[in-house]
Design a protein around this nucleic acid. Structure first.
Length: 207
DNA sequence: AAATAGCTCAACCGCCGCTGG
DNA sequence: TCCAGCGGCGGTTGAGCTATT
C-alpha cells in the first residue's frame, strides 16, 4: 500500500518517555532497523533476548525476532503474491490448516505473517462472499477457530481445497477478487536501503 | 471537499513446547 | 520431576491508507 511511502507510521502507543529500562513498543524506526540489521549481520540470528540487550535496542527479544523475520531478513519478499503462490497457499491451507509457519516454508521469501494476512484479507473474505452468493458447499469443512473457515481437520480434504483453489484462481475471480493484489513492493524504507548504511556498522548514524 | 466505510498489514499478546539446570 | 527461560506460533488489534458516498 502507498501508506508505506509516507514515512514512519505514527506510534501506536503514545510516545513513551525513554526511561532507562523501559521497553519500546510500536512501529520500528529506521534507526532501530539499522541497529538490528547491523547486529544480526555481525553476530547472526538467534538468542533474541541477547540481541535485544546487546544491541542496545529497547525492544523485547520477541519484537526483534519478529522484525527480523518479517521485515529485515534479506530474502524476504514483499507484496505481489502471485497466482501460483495463491494456489499453493490455498492447497497447503487445505492440508495443514492455520499452520502459517509451515505453509510459509513452502513459499520461499514469504513470511507466516504475510501469508496469514493474505489469507484473512483475501481468501477468507472471498470464501465468505462466495458462500453467501453461491452457497458453496462447506459441509465437509469444519471450523477449528473463529477466524478459520477451512481447516485441515480432515486430512483428506486437500482435494476439496484444490477445488476451491481452482475456483479462486479462475480468470473471473482473478480479475475481480485478486486484482487488488497489485500492491507496492516498497515500504517506508526498503531493506535494501539498509545495506549501504550497514557500513556504518551500527553507529546509529542515519542519513 | 468532507465524512466515513472498508482494507491492509505491522506489531503485539498470550499460549505452548522445548531445553537446561 | 519440577521450574524458569526462551523461541516459535497463531490470533488479534489498530493506525494509516484508499475508495466511496
Amino acid at each position: 500500500m502507498d501508506k508505506k511511502k509516507t514515512g514512519i507510521r505514527k506510534e501506536r502507543i503514545p510516545a513513551q518517555k525513554e526511561e532507562e529500562g523501559t521497553v519500546r513498543k510500536g512501529p520500528w524506526t529506521m534507526e532501530e532497523d539499522l541497529i538490528l540489521f547491523n547486529y544480526i549481520l555481525n553476530h547472526g540470528e538467534g538468542l533474541w533476548n541477547s540481541v535485544a540487550k546487546a544491541s542496545g535496542l529497547k525492544r523485547t527479544g520477541k519484537s526483534c525476532r519478529l522484525r527480523w523475520l518479517n521485515y529485515l531478513r534479506p530474502d524476504v519478499r514483499r507484496g505481489n503474491i502471485t497466482a501460483e503462490e495463491q494456489l499453493l497457499i490455498i492447497q497447503l491451507h487445505a492440508k495443514l490448516g492455520n499452520r502459517w509457519s509451515k505453509i510459509a516454508k513452502y513459499l520461499p521469501g514469504r513470511t507466516d505473517n504475510e501469508i496469514k494476512n493474505f489469507w484473512r484479507t483475501k481468501i477468507q473474505r472471498h470464501v465468505k462472499f462466495s458462500s453467501s452468493v453461491n452457497t458453496i458447499n462447506t459441509r465437509h469443512c469444519s471450523g477449528n477457530s473463529q477466524s478459520s473457515v477451512i481447516t485441515a481437520t480432515d486430512q483428506g480434504s486437500s482435494s476439496k481445497g484444490f477445488d476451491m483453489a481452482e475456483s479462486l484462481i479462475s480468470p473471473a475471480t482473478t480479475t475481480t477478487s485478486f486484482h487488488m493484489m497489485e500492491q507496492s513492493n516498497d515500504s517506508y524504507w526498503n531493506v535494501e536501503d539498509l545495506w549501504p548504511l550497514q557500513l556504518l556498522n551500527g553507529d546509529h548514524q542515519v542519513i
